[in-house]
Amino acid sequence: MPGCVIHGQGDLRVDRLPVPEPGPGQALIAVRYGGVCGSDLHYWRHGGVGDFRLREPMLLGHEVVGTILAYGSPDTSGPAVGTAVAVHPATPCGSCPECAAGRRNVCRDTRYLGSAARFPHVQGGFAAQVVVPIEQLRPLPVGLGLRRAALAEPLSVALHAVRRAGEVSGRHVLVTGAGPIGCLVVAAAKAAGAARVTVTDLLPTALEYARVAGADTVVRADDPADAGWPSETDEVDVAVEASGVAAGLDTCLRLVRRGGVVVQLGMLPPGPSPFAGNLVVSREIELRGAFRFDTEFDEALRLLAAEPAFDGLVSAVVPVTDAEAAFALAADRSRSCKVLLDFGA
């Protein structure tokens, strides 16, 4: 079967892999779609993401949906064979202090599909068939198709970031970065009752996708004269940094009101990152991190089932045989938002 494997920086291959066999407590899934994530692009372009570096070939992918083909044992309790499912990519350990405190998304010993955070690496889901624990299966709600359901994982990330921000209902939210995650933060903030969402980015195409997601105001990040910038009479209550660059964090800190909240969601480059730390002190700004998600995955599926407008964020569906072209397209934000690999053929 075909599988999308990263062998090193710039070395992405569609390898022929053996079909896996499910064991007890596991299910074999026929993958239909896999969303190309920013972290997948980092492994391809840079050989790692953040502080996680490739040390061996790794099957990429953690945004996968498909149908159940079989279980590893006949007495396994789970959705019926043939059920359409989304795959929650995380398997927390369940025993560390973070898991005990209900913060399983920062579990110190978690396994996450397609991640080089541990060694041996956790192989991902970009293959025609994958084996996953049955606890990670989520049947799709009525009315939700596999194509739109492929957005469940990144939408969960966005929902968690908005939850980390605290109360956003009736408030003005700033999002820096209008990539797929930033656009989904817009949708998550609006779903949480935000009165206004302003989005900044360098690219006009990205800002148009932000409008599709529900942004009220879009601003060119490189145009200080843009009339859409927040002002002293139009303060930002909450800012979510979704670009993964230090300049975005600086914008958030300078535009959020005194006593406001800034959520750092984008993964910054490895090593120290400069930021306006004195503003955190003098304005008592709360700077919070947001990493992955937990129970938000189920919330994401419900939200996707209820809102067909999410379809507009899927900019292309590419056969897995053209994986490198799909990655190049996903990396070109002037031409794309969310790109899906299609394993259906």
Rank of each mutant, 00 (worst) to 15 (best):
V280K: 02
A152Q: 10
A188W: 08
V263I: 11
L28W: 09
E284W: 06
R333N: 00
S243Q: 02
P319K: 06
G82V: 11
P274M: 07
P2N: 15
D109T: 00
A188D: 02
G143M: 11
E235N: 10
V87M: 12
R147S: 12
A323W: 02
P20D: 02
E56I: 11
V245H: 06
R16Q: 13
S39R: 05
G312Y: 01
H46Y: 15
G25K: 04
V81M: 11
P2K: 11
G50P: 01
T217W: 10
S231I: 04
S73C: 04
T83R: 13
P89G: 13
V175T: 09
P269A: 07
G50I: 06
A325G: 00
L265I: 02
H46F: 15
G244S: 00
G259A: 08
N278E: 14
R292C: 02
L113V: 03
A331E: 07
A290W: 04
D234P: 01
A210D: 01
G143L: 11
V245F: 13
L151Q: 02
A300L: 03
D322I: 00
G23R: 07
R283H: 13
A150C: 12
P319Y: 11
V130M: 08
V199S: 06
V132W: 09
S169T: 15
R138D: 13
D75G: 05
R53P: 05
P24G: 05
A215V: 05
R258P: 08
V19N: 05
V122M: 03
L17F: 14
D226I: 05
R16M: 13
P224A: 12
Q129W: 03
L253A: 06
S231L: 10
C252P: 01
N105A: 11
T233Y: 07
V85H: 11
M1S: 09
D322T: 08
V320D: 03
G124F: 00
A188G: 03
S73W: 05
G78M: 07
E135L: 15
G260M: 05
L69Q: 07
L146T: 14
A70S: 10
L203V: 04
A128D: 00
A188T: 02
P20C: 10
G8E: 10
V132T: 08
A323I: 04
Q26P: 01
Y112I: 06
P133S: 14
S95D: 15
E235K: 13
Y71L: 06
E324Q: 05
D234W: 10
F293C: 00
E232L: 13
G35L: 08
P120I: 04
G82D: 07
D40C: 14
S282H: 12
D322E: 09
A189R: 08
A187N: 06
V280I: 15
L146G: 09
V31A: 07
A116C: 12
V175P: 02
E241I: 08
G23K: 00
D332P: 01
